[in-house]
């Protein structure tokens, strides 16, 4: 191949722009190419570090040129930054590096440990799962008044929803469930709702607004 480095860069540019357009597996490949290729063409030994610095610089360049950060423009700037060094390498007759068994062994080992770490992360955060009992007015915007009761505990709860205009409704909220209760309410004044379960009481208030009725 007569221009191996420029050819690499051209292929990389296509992959990166396809990544901006389509994402998915092509996008992940594009992200890797963007981090490695331009930096590698500028400095082989410091490829990844240079790649990160170039992305940062290209981000600022995109902002300076258009007033905004645009991924496609960052890609173009990265390619522009790497084109000169690629051309110089081709003129100097530099060959592309070869991958040998040692590189593969090292990459395989690092990939195995990294994959284990990320695989374990898929199990999710270790969050405490404390009980809570919550009452709320559905969507605090006008026109959708209803009472929601959330019972985040391991046991069902008998709940009484009492209102300031004299109604009282008994419901049963299952463990881990959210129950929505739609009540008739006066069209003026202030709504005041008390939600009571054994040992706990919650209170909600709201001004009735035009559009609620």
């Amino acid at each position: 191949m007569r221009f191996p480095h420029l050819s690499c860069l051209a292929a990389g540019a296509v992959i990166m722009e396809l990544g901006v357009l389509f994402r998915g597996p092509v996008g992940i490949l594009a992200a890797v190419v963007a981090m490695v290729l331009p930096g590698w063409l500028v400095s082989r030994r410091l490829a990844l570090v240079t790649g990160l610095a170039l992305i940062a610089a290209a981000g600022l360049g995109s902002w300076a040129l258009t007033g905004e950060f645009r991924a496609w423009l960052v890609t173009l700037l990265l390619v522009a930054a790497a084109a000169g060094p690629a051309w110089r390498r081709d003129r100097a007759g530099a060959a592309l590096p070869r991958i040998d068994r040692r590189h593969l062994a090292a990459a395989g080992a690092v990939a195995a440990v990294t994959a284990t770490a990320f695989a374990l992360t898929t199990v999710g955060s270790v969050l405490p799962d404390d009980d809570f009992f919550q009452a709320r007015l559905t969507a605090p915007q006008p026109g959708k008044i209803a009472v929601e009761v959330v019972n985040h505990s391991a046991a069902a709860k008998p709940v009484v929803v009492a209102t300031s205009w004299g109604s009282a409704t008994e419901i049963r909220v299952e463990a881990g469930a959210t129950t929505v209760l739609r009540l008739p309410f006066p069209c003026t004044g202030r709504i005041d709702v008390t939600v009571t379960a054994p040992g706990v009481s919650r209170r909600l208030t709201r001004e009735v607004l035009p559009g609620d009725c």
């Binding site: 990166m16 994402r23 990160l52 992305i55 981000g59 950060f69």
Partner: peptide
């Protein structure tokens, strides 16, 4: 943020 936003944009992750 620039590096991260760019890689989010590319990868879709």
């Amino acid at each position: 943020h620039t590096v991260t936003a760019y890689l989010i944009d590319l990868s879709g992750l």
